[in-house]
């Protein structure tokens, strides 16, 4: 199954790369614009996710489910429900992980500038801001029947140490995000039941504070 998906992604990608070599800038820019046009982007997106992590040298995939919330100017709330409850909050200045009661981990962007970069990438990926990603990644992709896929590879070596490849698929909504780390861990997140809103609810706003 795994190999099958690999072939399915790699094959069009290669095909697309060949196509790209003929119409370099035109094709690239066009694709990005088409994807942007296709995607429904709104200030607040809520939805559910299923995450499958394949860690290097571990056979068993780690599957988790939960809810997420992406809000412009605020950040991301990543709420794991199964197999255990855990909330990860990404704001421009920090990453905070808590189990609902106490803080498990906190990364401060002022102390660790990399946090800012990671948050920016994740926020762009989860909110489908492909144009922002294109600034720090090289990308390729394809579009077929209103479904698109994009593959991003970091332009910079330092970033490439954290993220090997970033793959996004979707149509009107973002369907999946896949991250392959250089270390060999692969995280695939599938989204469903997305809803769009213009503003955060008061309760949500509070959770970002």
């Amino acid at each position: 199954m795994n190999t099958g998906r690999g072939v399915r992604i790699v094959f069009p990608a290669i095909f697309f790369l060949i196509a790209l070599s003929f119409y370099p800038s035109y094709a690239e820019e066009n694709l990005l614009r088409v994807v942007e046009k296709q995607l429904t982007r709104s200030p607040v997106v809520r939805g559910e996710f299923q995450q499958t992590r394949k860690l290097a040298r571990i056979r068993k995939p780690l599957i988790s489910h939960g809810r997420f919330l992406v809000a412009e100017n605020h950040g991301v709330l990543w709420e794991n429900i199964r197999p255990f409850a855990q909330v990860t909050r990404l704001t421009p200045n920090e990453i905070v992980q808590s189990d609902g009661k106490e803080t498990l981990m906190k990364l401060d962007a002022n102390k660790e500038p990399v946090v800012k970069i990671i948050n920016g990438i994740l926020f762009s990926a989860l909110s489908g801001n492909v144009a922002a990603l294109a600034q720090i990644f090289d990308y390729s992709g394809a579009m077929e029947d209103g479904k698109w896929r994009l593959e991003f590879t970091p332009k910079e070596k330092n970033l490439a140490r954290l993220i090997g490849v970033l793959r996004l698929t979707g149509g009107r909504d973002l369907a999946s995000v896949e991250m392959e780390s250089t270390a060999g861990d692969v995280t695939r997140i599938e989204f469903k039941a997305q809803t769009h809103a213009r503003e955060l609810s008061a309760e949500e706003r509070k959770r970002f504070e």
Binding site: A56, P83, Q97, L107, L162, T182, A183, D185
Partner: peptide, 12 residues
């Protein structure tokens, strides 16, 4: 289970 690792070292 974290969706993204801030470290480049494999989890194991």
């Amino acid at each position: 289970y974290a969706p993204f690792a801030a470290s480049s070292v494999p989890w194991l």
